[in-house]
């Protein structure tokens, strides 16, 4: 699975304002609403579901990356977005590092395989430290979009 298969380009945020876990999740979910990927009526329910998932264990997976996510019946296909926080946010990650790079995923309840393959793609690409660093220093959403496209075109052969 590629980034372009699930990342809503119009919802990419290069400068997250929020300084808390819930704040970031709210901002990113709102971006998905604004981009038309999820309905405004589902906003609160999706935020709550993602926060509930965080209560089970942080989705901060290390190296300054977090993948907040949930299943939600309102979506018929996997939707997601990317955000960068330049100051970093405490996400209770395993390695204790503040998180600067967020991949938020909302998936249909009956498609666990798609969710796994999105996580696989994200984690495989992020093993490349240069890619990580470039994403974190992106100046605008378009930069992020281009980095993701580049990764998609390189990632095929790995």
């Amino acid at each position: 699975m590629k980034f372009s298969d699930f990342v809503a380009t119009d919802a990419i945020r290069s400068h997250v304002d929020a300084g808390t876990k819930e704040g970031v999740i709210r901002e990113m979910t709102q971006s998905l609403v604004n981009a038309g990927s999820i309905a405004a009526a589902d906003y609160e329910s999706i935020v709550k579901a993602i926060m509930k998932r965080e209560d089970l264990g942080s989705t901060g997976i290390g190296r300054g990356v977090a993948v907040p996510h949930t299943k939600h019946p309102s979506v018929s296909r996997l939707v997601g977005t990317v955000a960068v926080s330049h100051s970093g946010v405490d996400f209770e990650s395993l390695d204790g590092e503040p998180v600067q790079l967020f991949f938020l995923l909302v998936s249909p309840p009956d498609r666990p395989g798609d969710h796994l393959r999105a996580l696989e793609n994200i984690s495989r690409q992020l093993r490349d430290e240069t890619f990580c660093r470039q994403l974190k220093s992106a100046k605008g959403p378009v930069d992020i979009q281009h980095l993701l496209e580049e990764a998609d075109s390189h990632g095929v052969a790995s």
């Binding site: 997976i61 290390g62 190296r63 990356v65 395993l94 666990p112 395989g113 796994l116 393959r117 996580l119 696989e120 994200i122 984690s123 495989r124 992020l126 093993r127």
Partner: peptide, 13 residues
């Protein structure tokens, strides 16, 4: 010992 690495397995049920 790395979540990132483990996730690249995409190990389904």
């Amino acid at each position: 010992k790395s979540i990132l690495e483990v996730l690249t397995l995409a190990a389904e049920a």
